[in-house]
Each structure stands twice: as structure tokens, then as C-alpha cells.
Amino acid sequence: MLRYALAFLPLPLAAAEVTDHAGFAVTVPDAPQRVVSLHDWVASVMAAELDVPLAGSSARVTDDGDFYIRSGFELFGLTVDNTPLASVHGQTDPERVASLNPDLIIGNSGDNLQQREQLASIAPVLMMDPENGMPPLEIYRDFADWTGRRDVFDAKLAAFQAQADRMAQGRDLSGCTYLPLLVNGRDGTLTIASDYGGVSLAMDALGAVPAEATALIPDGVARANVSAEIAGSLTAGVLILTHLQSRDETAETTRAEFEQVVPGFLDHLSGQGTVILNLPRERVYPTSFKGAAEVLAALPVGFCG
């Protein structure tokens, strides 16, 4: 009974109105103390990096039937033992969210829009859309504003930018193009991405620009599926491939899949001087400075030379 009563306590006096990615204007507490994230590998990761007090996070089910906070675990060691389970991915039970007694809920527009009204009866709800075509840094900044962590964000951004500048060594990299590329070995398609979390954070900070092929991506989304047969026309200074470590994939899995779908493509690009990175998706897909720093660290000396 007590926790239901708590949920109806008035919000802290200092409160601000913000507009979320689904277009709702929401009054949020100035410095939320109990945030529930319903997007494990985007919002939970951001929260962990910005020291937002997480009252719970959504998690996925592994093949053993365990719960697992994708990326939150790999990057910041989030588990359902140290961060209570707020929902099973795609099956949000509002009662479970309510039992965590949050003062702010970060939902994701894909999964939770239908349940927005229910969740809003528990605490202010902000819908996040990590693939709405906005640059990942902007989305991250929104998250920092929503959770009252703008100062932490700015400090981390400045430190990260300095690191990127050191890495660039004063070179003008505006001619350096980058392309996150996914492959589907079953139907032989490629997915090109314009905004790809930590990858974009890192490459944008260096001053690099998205490859020409990203023009194929429609407005308002972050990726497009194309036939592998257009591979011949893809060029980039840095090509970023990823693999899902948590599903037992390795760099070799992805490489083999490319070799099968577009034989000789990777070697052909290497021959042209393209740098090919092959990174765990759990670490670089979420938008985080930690993951972005790993992208920087993976770049060889003199890339895009």
C-alpha cells in the first residue's frame, strides 16, 4: 500500500517541461532520483554512463532463460542483480514498473507507445526513439536534459572531444567517410546505417562524415536495407562491421557472412585503403562515450590517410 501512496506524492518543486521523441510535452522532475529505463541497450547505457540513478531496467531473455541487460552489462556491468528488472523486452508489465516506484520512466517509442497512458499513471513518461534519424549525440543530449544530467554530459563530451582531437592530430578529416554496414546472410541483403550510436559519436567527433551511400536512407530513420548486389558501388574511408557477442558471434562470423554474401568485397575495399573495423555490437551500437572511445582505440594510426 505504501508504495502506491508514494507514487502519488507531489513532484519536486523544481520541474521542467520537455518534449519527448514521440511529441509529448511532459513535466519532469529536475533531478529524478528513481529512473526506470525500458530500453536496455540505449537508455540504460546512457543512464549508467551519466550516473543517473536507475531504479530498474528492461532486460532480454537469453537462451538459458536468464535475464540480461544488453550492452548495459558489457559496458557498465549492469545485471538484474544490481539493477532491478523493470520489464522483459517487449512485454512491459506496468505493475512491475510501478513496484519500482520510479519518479521518471524512459520508454522507447517502438515498444511502449501503446502503453504510454498506463505508464503515465505511474510517473512522468518520456518516449525515446534512438533511430529517428537524429544524430546520436543530439539524442544523448536530450537524454541528459531529461534526466537533469546536462553538466555531467557536457563534462564527458568535452573530455571525449579532447581525446578525439588528440587522435586526429590536427588533421582535417572532413574528407574521411565512414559507413556502418550490417549483413544478412540468409537473404543476401546489406543494411547501411547513417547514425550508429557509439560509432557515429566517435567518427563525428573526429570530423569524419557519413559515406555517400547513406543518402539512400530515408528521412526520419537511421538505416536502410539494400540488395547486396549494389555492393560494388559502396565506398568509405572507414567501414564498421559488428557482431552480436551475446549470441556467440565473433568477428569471424561477420567476416564469413560478408564473404558469402559479397565475395571479395572486403578484400577489394581493403585494397583501396579502406580501414575495416569489426567490433562487438553490444559495445558500439549504444550511444556512449565509453563505447565511442573503444571505436577510437580500434582505429589504426594514419587511417583515412
Binding site: P94, A98, S121
Partner: peptide
Amino acid sequence: AGLTETSAAERLAALRGEGMLAELRLP
């Protein structure tokens, strides 16, 4: 029925439209 134990008084309150249950379970 649900995640949290609910007393008869709470259920009656929900029927009157009060409390969290009225928002989450009743609809």
C-alpha cells in the same frame, strides 16, 4: 491477481476508481 499482493480493501478502492489498481488492472 498480479505482481503485488492486494487486500480486499484495495480492490474495493480500485472499484471506486482510487489507487494504482484502478489505473492498471481495472481497465
